[in-house]
C-alpha cells in the first residue's frame, strides 16, 4: 500500500510514444482505483463542498451560540458537540473549511508557479543561471520551513491570507527542485535532441516536451503539498498567526478547544477532519505516483 515502487523509473516520454507495458498496467489500474483512493477523493470532494457551500451541509449558524447548550457532547442534534458559548462545533468546522482549503490552494499555487518557474529556468537555461538559482533554492531549503513561514507571516501581518502566502513561500524550494530535476531529465532525452535537430525552437521543445513530461511529477507533488500546506496553515492558525477568533480555521478551533480539557471533542473533531483531509491528499498523491 505505502510501498514506493523503485523499479518504475521510466524515462521521459515523447508525445505519442507507445509503451506497451505502461498502457496495460497504467490504464488497467487507473480504471479501477483502490477503495482507499475512492474514499480519499470522496473526502476531498466533501471538504471542497463544505468550503463552497457550507449552508448545504449544516443548517446551524456557526456564530450563534445558545448559552444553555454549552459544552454538549457529540449527539444527533450537534454532531461535533457544542463549544463554551453553545455554538455548534460541526457548523464551525464546516464554515471554517473555506478558509483552510482556500489557504492551502493559494499556498500550493504559489509553490507551483514560483518554484516551478525557478526550476524551469534553472534546468532549461543551465550554466551560471542554474548555479545561482540552485543556491537560492539551497537557502530556502536550509531555513526550517515552519520557521520561514512564521517569519514571513510576521513580516506580512497576522491574517489567514498572509499565512497562506507564507506557507507558499516555504514550499517554493521543493517545487523548484523537483521541476529542475524533471527538466534536466527530459533535456537529456534523445527525442528532445531529435526535435532540436529537426529545427524545433527552444520554446517549442519547452512547451511540447519539457513541460508535459514534468507536469506529472509536479501535479503529484502539488497534491502532496496541498495536504502539507493544510498542516502548516493549521499550525500557524494554532499559534494565532491567522485571522482572529470569530473565524474558525481548523487550527484555530483546536487551539481554542484545548482550553477546555473536559470537552475533548472540541479538540478531536476539528483535528480528525484535518487528519482525514491530509491523509486523503497523501493517499491520492501516492496513487498518482504509482500509476505514473
Amino acid at each position: 500500500m505505502t510501498t514506493i515502487t523503485t523499479e518504475a523509473t521510466e524515462g521521459p516520454q515523447a508525445p505519442g510514444g507507445w509503451k506497451p507495458s505502461a498502457l496495460r498496467r497504467g490504464r488497467g489500474s487507473r480504471r479501477v482505483p483502490p477503495l482507499g483512493v475512492v474514499a480519499s477523493f470522496a473526502m476531498l470532494l466533501l471538504v471542497v463542498g463544505w468550503s463552497l457551500a457550507p449552508g448545504l451541509f449544516t443548517g446551524q449558524d456557526p456564530a450563534r451560540g445558545v448559552p444553555a447548550d454549552a459544552f454538549q457532547g457529540p449527539s444527533v442534534a450537534h454532531w461535533f458537540g457544542t463549544d463554551h458559548l453553545g455554538r455548534d462545533e460541526f457548523a464551525r468546522v464546516v464554515h471554517g473549511s473555506a478558509s483552510s482549503v482556500t489557504s492551502a490552494l493559494v499556498a500550493v499555487a504559489i509553490g507551483v508557479l514560483v518554484g516551478g518557474l525557478i526550476g524551469l529556468v534553472a534546468g532549461f537555461i543551465g550554466s551560471w543561471v542554474d548555479v545561482a538559482l540552485s543556491r537560492v533554492v539551497d537557502v530556502l531549503l536550509a531555513i526550517p520551513s515552519f520557521l520561514l513561514a512564521v517569519v514571513v507571516v510576521s513580516a506580512l501581518g497576522f491574517e489567514t491570507i498572509n499565512a497562506a502566502i507564507a506557507t507558499g513561500v516555504s514550499a517554493v524550494a521543493v517545487f523548484a527542485r523537483v521541476m529542475r530535476s524533471e527538466v534536466l531529465r527530459t533535456r537529456r532525452a534523445v527525442f528532445v535532441e531529435a526535435s532540436l535537430l529537426l529545427g524545433g525552437s527552444r520554446m517549442h521543445v519547452l512547451l511540447r516536451h519539457v513541460l508535459p513530461n514534468a507536469s506529472r511529477s509536479v501535479l503529484n507533488l502539488a497534491v502532496l503539498q496541498f495536504g502539507l500546506s493544510i498542516l502548516v496553515i493549521a499550525g500557524l492558525a494554532f499559534l494565532g498567526y491567522g485571522d482572529p477568533p470569530p473565524a474558525s480555521d481548523w487550527g484555530l478551533l483546536v487551539s481554542s478547544g484545548k482550553d477546555y480539557p473536559l470537552a475533548p471533542w472540541l479538540v478531536y473533531t476539528p483535528a480528525l477532519v484535518t487528519i482525514a483531509t491530509v491523509l486523503s491528499a497523501n493517499r491520492i498523491s501516492r496513487w498518482l505516483r504509482k500509476t505514473d
Binding site: 500500500m1 505505502t2 494554532f238 483546536v254 479538540v267 487528519i275 497523501n282 493517499r283
Partner: peptide
Amino acid sequence: RAFPSLFLSVPNFVIGLLLIN
C-alpha cells in the same frame, strides 16, 4: 506500512495535546 503516512497527516500540535490529555 500505513503508519508513516498517518504520522505525516497528523498536525504535531494535535499529537502534543493528545499526549498531554
